[in-house]
Each structure stands twice: as C-alpha cells, then as structure tokens.
Amino acid sequence: MAEHATHVPGLAHHFVSMEQQKEAGTLGMWIFLLTELMFFGGLFLAYTIYRTTYPEGFLYGSHLLNVPLGGTNTVVLIVSSLTMAMAVYYSQLGEKKKLIFFLLVTLALCFVFLIIKYFEYMSKIHDHLFPAFGTYHPSTTGPHGIPLELQQPVRVFLWIYFLMTGLHALHMIVGAGILITLIYMAQKGRFTKQYNSPVEISGLYWHFVDIVWIFLFPLLYLTGFHVSGAGH
C-alpha cells in the first residue's frame, strides 16, 4: 500500500487518476450538502407547521428581531461568498498569494458575522426572550412587550429562531475551521494548478452555509414586515 504512495502529489493510492479523485471529492461534497439540506429541512418543516398554527405569534416574534443587524449579516455573508469564489478562482490559477489573501478576507467576514450574531443573542437574553431553562419572562409593555395571550406562540417562534440560527452559526464555526486549515495548507504550498480540489470543495460548503442564511433571514426577520400595523 505505502509503496504505491503518491507518484503524483496529492493523489491517493486507491484512485487511478487526478480526475477520478476530484470527481469523487466533488460528488461527495454535493451529497453531503444534500444531507445538510435534509437536516435543516426538518426545521424548515417545523417552521412551516408552527407559522401556520401561530401566524400572530410569528408576526410578533419577527418584530422582536433586529433587522439592521440581520441585514448587515446578510450582506457580510454575500460578500464572503464572493471572496470565497475569488479564492477558488486564484487557487485554479495557482496564485498562492492571492489565494491566501481571499481566504483570509473570507475568514474575517466569518468572524464579523459571528460577532454580530453574538450581540443579537445577548440582547435577546437580556430582554428575557431566551425560550429555554425557564428564563423566558417577556414583559407585556414597552418596545419588546408581548401581550399575555401571545407569549406562548412567540416562545415557539423564538426556539425556532434560536435553533435554526444556532445550527447555522455552528456551521459557520466549522467553516472557520475549514478556512484556517486551507490557509495553513496554502501557506505550505500544497495547492497547485493541478491540485486544488480541497479549495473548490470547501467553497461549495461555504456557499451552502450562505444560502441557508439567505433563506433564514427573510423567513425569520422579515415575516410580516409588509403587514402594516402588526406588532408595535
């Protein structure tokens, strides 16, 4: 086994050619993303069911979220998708410096997203809107007030919000780990014009995580945005 090892740098012994290895890696990532889609799909189903059951609760809940911060994060992620695409582009050209630059920018945007998310979460916890551990005590008056009869439905909205964005943030953190690994590998000069599929495959993952957010933002933040007079 070992003596066959890498005539071509980066080619694993059980593959016949670089093309076969790349095809396997890419298909593997697409299938993985399919499993991710089904994973989030369960929560999107729960969202659909409960939004139908508690339309008013979802309107109120949606108004509790900070649209400017959520919107900023949406822009941050869209830009990070662009920088990731640039990284993939330069990895295919074999331009190490530009590759590392764009990976670093993507990583920085990832952290910006997570920091903004952190402050959003903290303000919810501060307003006693965290739906778990018995810490959910929203007031009935004020800008974040919820009428008593809607407190239960809004709580359903809030656990969906925390669970979906929380799982998304977890995927961002994993993505940060992948980016750091890629930067390390790029620094070591592991990527060439011939061998760059790890960058491309990680790019697929990154775009997927972005797309999930593109769906989460309108569904959670903008629900009932068009309904005048809803909420406060």
């Binding site: 991710e36 369960g42 929560l43 778990a132 359903v156």
Partner: peptide, 21 residues
C-alpha cells in the same frame, strides 16, 4: 437519516432546555 437526526436532537433539546418543541 438527517431528518431523524434533527428529530432526536430536537427531542433532546426539549428534555434538557425545557422548550416546547
């Protein structure tokens, strides 16, 4: 399998965090 994964995860959260999933 991912669907049952998120289902038992939700069940686990319901038990540990006391949220009404």
């Amino acid at each position: 399998t991912p669907v049952v994964a998120i289902t038992v995860l939700a069940l686990g959260f319901e038990r540990t965090l006391q949220i009404g999933i």
